[in-house]
Amino acid sequence: MSIKTAFVYPGQGSQLVGMGADLMHDRPQLTEVFEHVEAVTGRPVIEPMVHGPEDRLRETRTAQLVLFAFGTAMTRALAAEGVVPQLVAGHSLGEFTALVAGGWLDLDEAAATVVQRADAMARCCHERAGAMAAVMGTDPDEVARVLARHPGRRDDGRPRTVVIANYNSPRQTVISGDAATVEEIGEAIRTESIAVVQPLSVAGAFHSPLMGPAQDTLMATIARLPLRRGHTPMVSSVTGGLVTDLEHYRDALAHQITAPVHWTRTARRILDHRPHRIVEVGPGTTLRSLIRKVDRGQEIHPCGNTNELRAVTCTRG
C-alpha cells in the first residue's frame, strides 16, 4: 500500500537564526502558535528564533523549544493549505513534534515536556564534558568493531564512555561520549578504516550514558504523559518501527535520551509505505540528505521557509 505524503521532523542542530520571520510576516496567524508555546512554558521563542544571536539559539534550552514550536507552526501552515501527512516521524527531538502532528500528544503537554527534557540535558552537559562526532564513509558494524577493540578504561584509570548515538544512514554513524574518549576513538577510526570523522558542534554527549541523569529526571514525566492513539501513524526513531503498543512506546520514549537514534531503520520503514513524497518540516535539509542515502530516487521536499512552503503546496497533487 502506498501513501501520498509523509512528514519528517529534524532534531537539534538544524536551527537557524531568522527562521520563522518570513512565516510570521506572510501568515501572521501562525504567530499565535509561537505565543501560545511561550505562554505555556514561560520561555521565549520568537526573540531567539528571529533575532538570535547564534550562540543563544545553539543553547540546548533554547534550541529544542524553538525547533519544536517552529515545526508545529509549519505543520499548521501546511494543513491550512490542505497538505496533511499520512505518516509522521522525527529525529530525536523531532519525535516530540511528530507526536503532536500525528495527534498522539497534546501541544501543551509536549511543549512542557520539551522544556523539561532540554533543561535536564543542559544540566548533564554542564556537569560532564561530552562530545559527538560523525563517522562517514563506513558502515556501523565497522564502527562497532573499532569501539569493541578499545578497553573499558583509559590509561589514567578513568572509564571510557563512547557509544554509537545515531544510525543516520548506511554509511553515516555518530559516536557520543566523554570528550577525551570520543577524540581518541575518532583517531582510531581514521587510522583503522577509510572513514572520515567530523567532530560535531554540540553541547554534550547526547544519546549516550552521560545523559543518564537527564533520563532519570524525565522518567516520571513520561510515565504520566497522556499519550493516545493518534489520527496519523507514526514511526519512532527510538525503535525504527511503527508505534502500535502505547505502553511499549512509552517505555521507549522514556529511554530516548540515552538510546541511539535509529534513523536508517526509520527511513526504511517510511519508504516501505511507498510515499509519493516526503516533506522535511523544519529548517535545513539534513533528513532529506540522509533519506536519499537510503533511496536516492525518493521525492523529498524541504519546508523551512515561506518559499519552500509555497513549493510544497503547489505540488500537492
Rank of each mutant, 00 (worst) to 15 (best):
G204I: 03
R310H: 07
T60M: 02
S176C: 09
R160K: 10
P283W: 09
L309R: 02
L93M: 01
I46T: 10
P302V: 05
E59T: 09
L200I: 15
R268A: 05
E192L: 15
V83I: 09
A73D: 01
D216F: 00
I257S: 02
V162W: 03
V279T: 08
G18Y: 05
A195D: 08
V8P: 01
D108E: 12
I291L: 11
R190F: 11
V66Y: 05
M121N: 09
R274M: 08
G212E: 15
R250P: 06
M49Y: 00
V115H: 06
P275N: 08
Y249P: 02
L225N: 09
L246A: 04
T264R: 05
T244A: 14
V114H: 03
A259W: 13
Q215I: 04
A39Y: 00
A129Q: 03
E183I: 14
P10S: 02
P213M: 08
R76L: 14
R265N: 06
G82H: 11
P28K: 13
D26L: 13
V40K: 06
P44T: 09
L210N: 05
I222F: 13
P85E: 07
S193H: 13
V114R: 06
S289T: 11
L246K: 06
M19N: 07
S2N: 12
V114W: 02
A267F: 05
V114T: 02
K293N: 11
Y167R: 02
L57Q: 02
L309Y: 06
A21D: 10
Q215D: 00
K4V: 05
F206L: 02
T315M: 13
P159L: 12
G82D: 09
Q215L: 04
H36R: 11
T161S: 09
D245W: 14
M234D: 05
R149W: 07
T173S: 10
T221W: 07
I3L: 15
T313E: 10
G20C: 01
I46C: 10
R154Q: 13
V114C: 00
M136L: 14
L225E: 12
N307R: 13
R27K: 11
A69K: 04
R277G: 06
D216T: 12
R117F: 03
V143M: 03
A267S: 12
Y9M: 00
A89V: 05
A144H: 03
R145N: 12
A188T: 15
H231K: 13
A311V: 01
A133G: 06
R288E: 07
R160E: 05
E54I: 14
A223I: 12
G297W: 14
P213V: 09
F68I: 03
E184A: 15
T315P: 09
L105T: 10
G11M: 07
A144T: 11
E35T: 13
R277W: 04
V197T: 09
V281M: 06
R224T: 15
Q215Y: 00
R310I: 10
L78C: 08
E95I: 10
L78M: 12
V114M: 03
T285L: 08
R268W: 00
C303S: 04
R158N: 00
T191N: 10
A122R: 03
V279P: 06
A111H: 08
A220L: 11
V50A: 07
I291V: 13
Q12H: 10
E35Y: 04
M121L: 14
N166G: 03
F70P: 05
A21M: 10
T5L: 05
V50W: 08
L93N: 07
V281S: 01
